[in-house]
């Protein structure tokens, strides 16, 4: 059983075109920059917005199917939606908010009490949402959703409204609650750290288009597209063209690279993680000479900003060094760097 989504919707020039499936009992991340259509996708699944085409099937139950003319109301879908701002009813107490979620009127009180206990809300059950901290508000919202016995959970950037020093605690509480949930969970975020910690698998969304669902480790270590590469935290990306002999021309850096493995069909970009790039002693294969633009002191070490000698654009290369690594290199004005072939990321499309 799972959630299968396939939908299209256009807003003026923006076109949403997503297709993925999320299995039961697993948190599936939807990762993308802001404005890529993540929230709209969730809204379409919940029934708040209507797609132009496609179908949505949850546990074999069709929620939406353009061709068959099926479009269940949000009330009939049994899909829990955790909003960014939690959307608690300001005129009701915590207890009342949770009771609203219970569909069976006779069990309202009993179910609400059970959830108040399960989510440690006893101390605040008589309070109003505005009297609660961000983390407590999220627990109330979650309790209210669980009270409605949803078959799937949609989490829309659940930590964006929290102070960063509170986040880790709320994140742990949320992941504990999610462990007990047996249906599919979709987790929307722009943060790769959150995806890495909370989701075993994820799907990248870029400019309204979804990419394949991948295990998170694979997604971050071997991103297949430019947007996935950017979201994995790698900032060294250059447009690329394949030469007939198996080598790649990195157009923005003006470097010829030999990956030593077959090139993908639709190669458009190459990338190299900052930590994988290495200082080199002089010319050689997979090496390039760069002018040093500046050195940035960071918490985890130093980042050297390099301008490749043959660069066409204003493209830069970032080289990560350990603390003191720059002094050890004797602070030169130009530097040769090596692109280890195994670390090269061969990217297909956006």
């Amino acid at each position: 059983m799972s959630l299968e989504v396939e939908l299209k919707k256009s807003f003026g020039s923006f076109k949403l075109d997503v297709a993925f499936s999320a299995p039961d009992g697993v948190v599936t991340g939807l990762l993308g920059a802001s404005g890529c259509g993540k929230s709209v996708t969730l809204r379409c699944i919940a029934g708040i917005e209507t797609p132009d085409a496609g179908r949505i099937v949850l546990n074999g139950r069709t929620l939406f199917d353009r061709e068959k003319g099926v479009n269940l109301s949000p009330q009939e879908r049994h899909v829990g939606y955790l909003f960014q701002n939690y959307a608690l009813f300001p005129n009701m107490t915590v207890e009342h908010n949770i009771a609203v979620g219970v569909r069976n009127r006779k069990q309202q009180k009993a179910t609400a009490e059970k959830l108040i206990h399960a989510l440690y809300l006893e101390d605040v059950q008589g309070k109003y949402p505005r009297q609660l901290s961000g983390g407590q508000q999220q627990r109330v919202a979650l309790a209210r959703i669980l009270a409605s016995e949803p078959e799937a959970l949609l989490l829309d950037e659940p930590f964006s409204a929290l102070d960063s020093y509170l986040k880790w605690q709320v994140e742990m509480e949320l992941s504990q609650t999610l462990e007990d949930f047996s249906g599919p969970v979709l987790f929307v975020t722009h943060s790769r750290e959150e995806v890495r910690r909370l989701c075993p698998q994820a799907c990248v969304l870029s400019r309204g288009k979804s990419q394949v669902v991948q295990p998170v480790g694979e997604l971050f270590q071997r991103p297949r597209t430019r947007s996935a590469c950017l979201l994995s935290g790698c900032r060294n990306i250059s447009r690329a063209a394949a030469n007939g002999d198996g080598s790649v021309e990195a157009l923005d850096w003006g470097v010829r690279l030999i990956p030593g493995r077959p090139l993908p069909e639709g190669l458009t970009h190459v990338g190299i993680p900052e930590g994988a790039l290495r200082p080199a002693s002089g010319p050689g294969p997979n090496r390039a000479e760069c002018r040093v633009e500046r050195v940035l002191e960071e918490l985890s070490g130093e980042t050297v900003v390099l301008l490749p000698a043959g660069n066409a654009q204003d493209a830069r290369l970032l080289l990560a060094l350990e603390q003191g690594g720059w002094a050890a290199l004797c602070t030169p004005e130009t530097l040769w760097v090596e692109f280890p072939p195994d670390a090269l990321l061969l990217l297909e499309g956006d």
Binding site: P74, Q75, V79, Y81, F83, F89, G101, S148
Partner: peptide, 27 residues
Amino acid sequence: FDMTLAYAAQTLGRSNSWIFWRVRMPY
């Protein structure tokens, strides 16, 4: 009015008239 409140109530299974009288009007 914050429309997400109405959407939240809808996904929780509440009718539109309930939302009007119990959420929108008090708000």
